[in-house]
């Protein structure tokens, strides 16, 4: 009887230990009492897909609203505003003008108004490298010149040359080839 109690006690202790180790010990050797509580409800304040989209195409009074509209609803809510602002900003789309992708103002702003970045899982990732288009965004991509060319450059990138290239073509520090890729701070 005494033995049985002893065995039960051991068993109970062992179970307790197993239970503890399963539930309480976090990874990377961190102790349970250092484990923070992250739980809670987090509500959206800002969002971004493609570079410069909110800042260029959304009118001042609507910027917060744009940041709090889910991408699946952005097209319906904002395409008209995007088109009006594009036409006000660039003469290249007047009279049915197209950009180098063959898109008129309506088609181009329909793409842009849903502010997500398209990313390929199958190879080169770049905003535009002369060959690949919208397969990601790499650190060295000159996204502003690409966007200026699409806004002002017309059908063959030659319209309004003074407006379609800011002539800043690279970062002020070289990027790293390995994680975390971004250069150390100044």
């Amino acid at each position: 009887m005494k033995n049985l109690k002893l065995v039960s006690g051991y068993l109970f202790s062992a179970l307790l230990l197993i239970a503890c180790s399963k539930n309480d010990v976090p990874g990377n050797g961190e102790g349970v009492y250092n484990n923070p509580v992250l739980s809670g409800t987090y509500i959206q304040e800002d969002q971004m897909g493609r570079p410069a989209v909110n800042t260029v195409f959304v009118s001042s009074s609507s910027k917060d609203e744009f940041n709090r509209t889910t991408p699946d609803n952005q097209g319906n809510a904002f395409q008209g505003m995007f088109e009006a602002n594009l036409l006000a900003l660039s003469p290249a789309y007047a009279n049915g003008g197209l950009n180098a992708l063959g898109m008129d103002a309506t088609t181009f702003t329909t793409v842009l108004a849903t502010d997500v970045l398209n990313v390929s899982l199958d190879g080169t990732t770049t905003f535009y490298d002369g060959t690949n288009l919208l397969t990601g965004r790499a650190l060295a991509d000159d996204v502003i010149t690409v966007e200026l060319l699409l806004i002002f450059g017309g059908e063959d990138f030659t319209e309004y040359p003074a407006l379609s290239n800011d002539h800043v073509d690279e970062n002020d520090k070289p990027f790293l080839t390995s994680f975390p890729y971004l250069a150390s701070p100044w």
Binding site: P51, V53, K63, R137
Partner: peptide
């Protein structure tokens, strides 16, 4: 790119300036 883009987040700790997605080393 998105720096200081909207009044509610301007200059604050939740103000996203940029976003990148690319293939790793």
């Amino acid at each position: 790119a998105d720096h200081i883009d909207a009044p509610a987040v301007q200059g604050g700790a939740s103000d996203i300036t940029d976003f990148y997605a690319f293939q790793g080393e």
